[in-house]
């Protein structure tokens, strides 16, 4: 049962099953990889937006936290993590 990362609930770890590199720009794709967002990796959505908007999204990945926008998160397919 997969869903998109932009709609994943906060606080629950998920595993990345597929990233649609084609809808991301070259630079966006590379920065995602540099952040370690790759197929098979576990991430945890932590914070989403503020008073005025549901953007951006803060993710926990390993011992790091990164911020991406919903547009990029929509390119990332996830499934519930086994260790959740």
């Amino acid at each position: 049962m997969t869903s998109k990362l932009d709609s994943a609930p906060l606080g629950t770890a998920v595993r990345i099953t597929r990233i649609d590199w084609d809808i991301l720009s070259h630079d966006e794709g590379r920065r995602l990889r540099e952040f370690g967002l790759l197929e098979g990796v576990e991430v945890k959505p932590l914070h989403r937006g503020s008073l005025f908007s549901r953007e951006p999204l803060a993710l926990g990945i390993g011992r790091m936290q990164v911020i991406i926008r919903g547009r990029q998160a929509a390119a990332i397919e996830v499934e519930p993590a086994a260790t959740a």
Binding site: D27, P56, M64, V66, I68, R69, Q72
Partner: peptide, 10 residues
């Protein structure tokens, strides 16, 4: 141009 991106490490 395209909607600006926002990707950074916290």
């Amino acid at each position: 141009g395209n909607a600006a991106g926002f990707m950074m490490e916290m």
